[in-house]
Design a protein around this nucleic acid. Structure first.
Lengths: 151, 151
DNA sequence: GAGTCTATCGCAACACGTTGCAATAAGCAT
DNA sequence: ATGCTTATTGCAACGTGTTGCGATAGACTC
């Protein structure tokens, strides 16, 4: 499996990055990173807490959330807010992307950087803002639902 | 003041809309609508709860949140999620708009429909999605911070 | 005005996430 | 190996928002 090598590289990178900042490589952090790496798609904070506690029942939510913040600070993880305000985390390894929620059918699509490029250009043109694709979370009607409603 | 008349119209509209759905016009709902109308800009859920409790200490958070959901269902109020996931509510009277948060300086700008038009067009072109401006909440770098970082 | 139906309320408990603080343990120096 | 410094942990409490349930009280009929 190609991803096995990626995991090791990640661990190594993390260890070095922490040491460089005078921070520590603890067992809890190893577990949290492992769980995050094993959650190949997105996972909510609560899900991650639960999975971490399966591995180490003594772990607490505060530790998990603080570690997630740290990983984000290091640029190794990202989070965004879903339409209900819940948090969703994923590793930075996953390609940067936005999210589209259809309020008609409830479907969720991902938005890749290539498709998003003209949108980001339009935002910049209209507002001067350089938007982060990873925080771009749109709600609206997908083409199908829009057509269905346009009766 | 022109807004005084608007408030009365709103109350009247609401009463009729509720009756049409077999729902009730209670004192708590009157208070909540009044508080929302008095919060001329945005207000978080917690702020609204607090203000409602000033008027009626017996009111509970569940009532306030349920009423806000109801108002949204009726199309008289809107909410969106800030960058921290907190909810923010406002009356639909306020012009539909998006939000821009700068992660550099923390500033928040509003995005009016005219400026947003090319963005919505770009989204539609790239994805087929008809995005809701009211849920458009972007995070990124404003022009100033972007220039400052681009050293 | 009295009675009936049921939407709404307040309460209590829960879910998710955050924060302050004292105890623990990682990493370094000797 | 031992001790020292301080980052990190677990705990406990809090803040925001949601949900289930029995009691209350609108609104409608007679």
């Amino acid at each position: 499996m190609a991803s096995r090598g990626t995991e090791e590289t990640l661990t190594e990178r993390l260890k070095v990055a922490l040491k460089a900042r005078g921070q520590r490589w603890t067992e809890q952090r190893q577990i949290i990173v492992k769980v995050l790496a094993a959650s190949n798609s997105h996972a909510t904070g609560a899900e991650l807490v639960e999975r971490v506690r399966e591995e180490d029942p003594s772990a607490t939510p505060s530790t998990v959330y603080r570690t997630l913040d740290l990983l984000e600070d290091l640029g190794l993880a990202r989070h965004h807010h879903g339409p209900d305000g819940r948090e969703t985390y994923h590793l930075e390894e996953i390609i940067e992307h936005g999210h589209l929620h259809c309020r008609g059918c409830g479907a969720e699509q991902e938005l890749d950087p290539v498709s998003a490029a003209p949108i980001l250009v339009a935002i910049k043109g209209a507002t001067g803002f350089s938007a982060d694709l990873d925080h771009l979370s749109l709600q609206g009607l997908c083409a199908t639902c829009h057509a269905a409603q346009g009766e």
